[in-house]
């Protein structure tokens, strides 16, 4: 970030510089690092170091609030007189950074699957991960993944058998299995699905009879007919998916 911010300053792109700093604080520091720090991974030295670094970067833009926060960190020196952060090639951990991004992706994907299945935040689900070569990395972040993806239990193995009746997430060579029964209240879901199937079937029926109606076929413009046909095949597809899902629940 620092390199880019410096470049923006050189080119008088102050808005870009400010936005980059803010994005770092928000989407990197707050959304991830602080969250991770809530668990056993807490490292006050780094947490404070990064906080100080971004306060310095923020200072030209928002001098007052940054200086006020600084007062809680440093009693002697004022932020206004601090040194501007510099790029440090000693502190560029390319490999580890990639690993962390993998963990973010994993957590994000589990989270979005949860929301896809409308799983209540309070409900813990279970996961089994076949991590291949990434087992060491994931093991060392087991607590983070478990907590941030709201998992009840998490097993990390090098590899294993396919697990039936599970949702599977693939990220490169990693496979994440999430048993469906954890995510779904089967009875409730069956109920919902069969209702939806009935509705779909009724709709498809009426669409079909419309397309079989000679009057409609003769009089309607070609594009309209094409559209209706397309619609029918889409709806039939969805119905098939719903039925498959129904089967998987039983």
């Amino acid at each position: 970030m620092i390199k880019e911010v410096d470049k923006d300053f050189e080119n008088f792109r102050l808005s870009d510089a400010g936005t980059k700093i803010y994005d770092f604080i928000w989407s990197k520091y707050c959304d991830w690092y602080l969250e991770i720090s809530k668990g056993e991974n807490k490292n006050p030295a780094v947490l404070l170091f990064v906080l100080k670094e971004f306060l310095k970067l923020l200072h030209p833009f928002v001098p007052f609030v940054s200086e006020k926060i600084w007062e809680f960190l440093e009693k002697k020196d004022m932020l206004i007189a601090e040194n501007w952060p510099t790029f440090d090639k000693e502190l560029i951990f390319t490999k580890e950074a990639k690993g962390m991004e993998l963990i973010h992706e994993l957590i994000n994907k589990i989270r979005s699957l949860r929301s896809e299945f409308k799983v209540e935040p309070s409900k813990k689900i279970n996961a089994i991960i076949y991590a291949g070569d990434q087992k060491v990395l994931l093991d060392s972040n087991l607590e983070v993944i478990k907590r941030m993806a709201l998992l009840g239990s998490l097993e990390i193995k090098k590899s294993g058998q396919k697990i039936p009746e599970s949702k599977i997430i693939c990220i490169k060579e990693i496979e994440v299995y999430l048993p469906l029964k954890d995510m779904i209240d089967t009875e409730k879901e069956l109920n919902r699905v069969s209702k939806e199937i009935t509705q779909k079937e009724r709709f498809i029926k009426s669409l079909r009879s419309k397309l079989n109606n000679q009057g409609f076929i003769k009089n309607a413009p070609k594009e309209v007919i094409e559209k209706e046909k397309e619609r029918l095949s889409e709806e039939e597809n969805t119905l098939k998916k719903l039925k498959d899902f129904q089967k998987s629940l039983k």
């Binding site: 970030m1 770092f24 991974n41 490292n43 780094v46 670094e53 951990f93 950074a97 972040n141």
Partner: peptide, 17 residues
């Protein structure tokens, strides 16, 4: 020396690069 976990390294990289 204070930089330990993968998360530490990741946040520092993103700040200092």
């Amino acid at each position: 020396k204070h930089i330990k976990s993968v998360a530490d390294k990741w946040i520092i990289r993103n700040c200092k690069n």
